[in-house]
Design a protein around this nucleic acid. Sequence first.
DNA 1: CTGTTAGCGCATTCAA
DNA 2: TTGAATGCGCTAACAG
Lengths: 340, 340
Amino acid sequence: MPATIHDVAKKAGVGIGTVSSVLNNSRPVNPATRQKVLDAIKWLDFVPNPSGRRLSMGKTHTIGVVIPFFTIASQIERLRGVMSVIAGSDYDISLYTVETVPQRNKVLQRVARRGHIDGLLIFSLSPTEEDLQRIKQRQVPTVLIEAYHPEVHSLSLDDVAAARNAVEYLINLGHRKIAYIGDYLEDPFGTYFSRNRFEGYCQALKAAGITVDKRYQRQGWLDRSEARQLALDLLQLPDRPTAVFAFSDEQALGVLEAARDLDISVPQQLSVIGYDDIRIAHFAQLTTVRQNLFDSGVKGVELLLNVIEHPNATPQHIQLPTKLVIRHTTAPPPVMENIL
Amino acid sequence: MPATIHDVAKKAGVGIGTVSSVLNNSRPVNPATRQKVLDAIKWLDFVPNPSGRRLSMGKTHTIGVVIPFFTIASQIERLRGVMSVIAGSDYDISLYTVETVPQRNKVLQRVARRGHIDGLLIFSLSPTEEDLQRIKQRQVPTVLIEAYHPEVHSLSLDDVAAARNAVEYLINLGHRKIAYIGDYLEDPFGTYFSRNRFEGYCQALKAAGITVDKRYQRQGWLDRSEARQLALDLLQLPDRPTAVFAFSDEQALGVLEAARDLDISVPQQLSVIGYDDIRIAHFAQLTTVRQNLFDSGVKGVELLLNVIEHPNATPQHIQLPTKLVIRHTTAPPPVMENIL
DNA sequence: CTGTTAGCGCATTCAA
DNA sequence: TTGAATGCGCTAACAG
């Protein structure tokens, strides 16, 4: 059995209060006594049991990180950002991945409460009204990343503008037949950004007087292989699009794979734009909307740590910048098309 | 403040022992009483405080997962495997990423003890003798994945054979000038597999009577951009290699990027083999040594859960299979070379 | 400056 | 079948 604070106290010939004091610097201790305690701690290889400490202090020193779509590279980049700041703090990270609705509910209903975690960092999941009531009632410090609710702190992107921007770029290159491959507009997790990106896509088309063509829209899971199937279908249309705007880099990569399957050269015959700028995007030379994913994780925990200290602060909503990164999967549409 | 077991007991008009009994099914409870308790629990939205439970039971219901090189895609795949089985258990995951030696030590010295976690899953980090003494002395159930020590349960690959196999494949294609780009043979974390893969590389060359040429060996961090630099250098050698065997897919991708920078076509002028078969490898059409990463995570926790139940089992060492996946970055060397 | 004690929330033992 | 009491390891308040 590991040593306890009592063992240390006995070994050092002092009371446990003194040991606790040197452990936490919670009150002045005579240097000589302190040294005795320190020696005992070292001798016994003592580290305080966190459960005892938690119970006593009513703090868990743990942050719950809730991540859906864990297969998606962008989530990992965010998590890396989170870990980089946590490593320098005295918090632990409890990881909750969400792949199904029951999992989502389990986390939000059972775990998201005081006594379990000190704060909750939620990626890409916008809380429902019901969730929100729970969170507020339980007073769990919460920060959303890439999600939004007016009453919860959040970091998010101006998805509408970013998507509109990307599609405008395609239009300026001369494209008219621009397809959209995205997530389901209404997904069971209650995300909202698919709607926003689609909205931006529509806005750009309308502003340019291009009719929004249903045939050029496809929905699927945030998954490369599914996007590939959708793109395969899309690219075999009699009047196939000359450009595709994808909801995410993962899906854009699926489109690139489909183009390769069909011997359609990119960007000569087909332009592709993604979203996120995950690390593979660079390798694939993908034109994409960059969001600084690592940074969003860093900023997210920093905000959460702040909220834990000041629980009653009014909700902040930080907009993270995006930027269109032009690489080599976009070009003007084939000339043939323009002549016809 | 959240409801406690006392609140439930009062609300239901019973003692806390009874509440605990229905919570844990630890002893028979009269159906009517049980229902009263259940109603109170639901009414109060009560979930037991884990710190209390932990302290009382001496179990944390938490598994620590230690992951170095978190930027590397292969680690994420393993973690996904871990999460997939944890989701169905009543364990939580505490994530510890290790990017520096102090971080490594902090985890192994402070966190790796009973009372903090019930078990430890360590990726890609072989414990030193000193680490081992600590682990054994503290009796922390531990499983290593892609690492090895005779006295700790482990899942690993026959790296030597897998690497030899890959290089033999290159030799059979006709290559003679085969370079190796790898991790540092002695890294500060105490991994060992870089040595093994390098050993396999050397074995294959020697068996074919090819001299192992120092000029064709490069070492760097497990990182794509660094591998790219190394490859840039390698490929500008006066008598440049016709094939590169990389320690990991990440590094192989760096080699591909370097080849692209230098307008060297793959596989016509240069063959490249990676290791891991991370998801990008498929997109990049990379020939690689496949290890089932997701599965290694699954098997790893399953073993750990088992060890937690049976702490005194003799150490198991499971060898995971590998397989050379031939895609489109390998081909016979350029004909010119053979003529000369 | 320091030892003692109460209490954090729970599981579990001992009585009843 | 159940209630009350004990202790898990710790922090913090209290008393000296």
